[in-house]
Simulated assay, not measured.
Amino acid sequence: MRRIYYGRVSTLDGQTAASQYADAAAQGIAQDDVFIDEGVSGFHVPPSEREQWQHVERDLRKGGVLVVRWLDRISRRYDELHETMQRLMKKGVRVECTLNGMAFDGQETDATRKAIRDAILAFMAAQGEADYRNRREMQARGIALAKEAGKYKGRKHAVDYAEVRAYQAEHGGSVRALAEHFGVGIATISRALKTTNEVNQ
């Protein structure tokens, strides 16, 4: 049975996908079976609109095993995560979480165990959205207090945008190659180069 790893890297904090690639390797999953959406919000971008997730659903249309770090990699919204997981369950997919070893088996036939499985899924989906909203609210409060105190300078870039532009001007390279060179996500490099285009317009 084919095992596929799915990961997602947020647009926040200049995250990279390195830890999730390492997680996949630790699970013995070949790189060809690893799909990671980079620079994608789990709250604002539904799975159906992500390029790599579309590969996952296509490859699991007849069942298989989906490995994720945790369910929030699929979505941080209750409705989206709940609907996506139910769709996978109906296809007979087994979803395994490497963070704590939890598994949700789409091939379960016992009515009681299915009910328990679905109840846990619903709870985890609701908790994921609540955690996200709470964290964003706390961040907003912290920023507001920092602004009032005159200490807020905005979020620090994960990499010096000017350095990225200078490097590309001298050496060239695709967005992905630049991301690997600077050790940041693709979205970060895209923002750095977009800044150049906006300045030149």
Rank of each mutant, 00 (worst) to 15 (best):
residue 188 T to F: 01
residue 106 G to L: 02
residue 147 K to C: 00
residue 2 R to W: 09
residue 76 R to E: 09
residue 183 G to S: 00
residue 66 L to C: 04
residue 126 A to L: 11
residue 169 A to L: 12
residue 145 L to H: 10
residue 195 T to P: 02
residue 94 R to D: 06
residue 161 Y to G: 00
residue 40 V to L: 02
residue 44 H to Y: 11
residue 112 T to L: 14
residue 55 H to P: 01
residue 130 A to F: 13
residue 148 E to C: 02
residue 195 T to H: 15
residue 174 S to M: 00
residue 98 T to F: 12
residue 101 G to Q: 10
residue 37 D to V: 01
residue 196 T to E: 15
residue 6 Y to L: 02
residue 103 A to W: 09
residue 31 Q to T: 13
residue 194 K to I: 03
residue 104 F to L: 07
residue 167 Y to K: 08
residue 173 G to K: 08
residue 144 A to L: 03
residue 196 T to H: 12
residue 2 R to C: 06
residue 110 D to G: 14
residue 71 L to P: 12
residue 187 A to P: 01
residue 59 D to N: 07
residue 136 R to K: 12
residue 176 R to L: 07
residue 64 G to H: 01
residue 153 K to I: 00
residue 98 T to D: 08
residue 148 E to H: 06
residue 186 I to Q: 10
residue 91 K to Y: 02
residue 74 I to W: 02
residue 60 L to V: 02
residue 113 R to Y: 04
residue 42 G to Y: 03
residue 17 A to P: 14
residue 87 R to I: 01
residue 158 A to F: 11
residue 185 G to L: 06
residue 74 I to H: 07
residue 3 R to E: 15
residue 11 T to Q: 13
residue 59 D to T: 00
residue 92 G to I: 00
residue 83 E to H: 14
residue 59 D to A: 00
residue 66 L to N: 06
residue 200 N to V: 12
residue 145 L to S: 09
residue 114 K to E: 13
residue 93 V to G: 07
residue 41 S to V: 00
residue 176 R to D: 15
residue 178 L to F: 11
residue 183 G to A: 01
residue 192 A to K: 02
residue 34 V to C: 10
residue 14 G to P: 05
residue 7 G to K: 08
residue 153 K to H: 07
residue 77 R to A: 03
residue 90 K to R: 15
residue 70 W to L: 06
residue 100 N to I: 03
residue 153 K to T: 01
residue 169 A to I: 04
residue 149 A to F: 01
residue 103 A to N: 12
residue 136 R to D: 13
residue 114 K to G: 05
residue 176 R to T: 15
residue 164 V to C: 06
residue 163 E to R: 11
residue 81 L to D: 08
residue 119 A to P: 09
residue 59 D to C: 00
residue 173 G to T: 06
residue 181 H to P: 08
residue 169 A to K: 15
residue 29 I to Y: 12
residue 68 V to N: 07
residue 50 R to W: 05
residue 130 A to Y: 15
residue 133 R to F: 06
residue 184 V to R: 11
residue 181 H to G: 05
residue 50 R to D: 06
residue 135 R to K: 09
residue 84 T to R: 10
residue 129 E to V: 06
residue 22 A to Q: 15
residue 62 K to R: 12
residue 170 E to I: 00
residue 3 R to A: 06
residue 47 P to H: 08
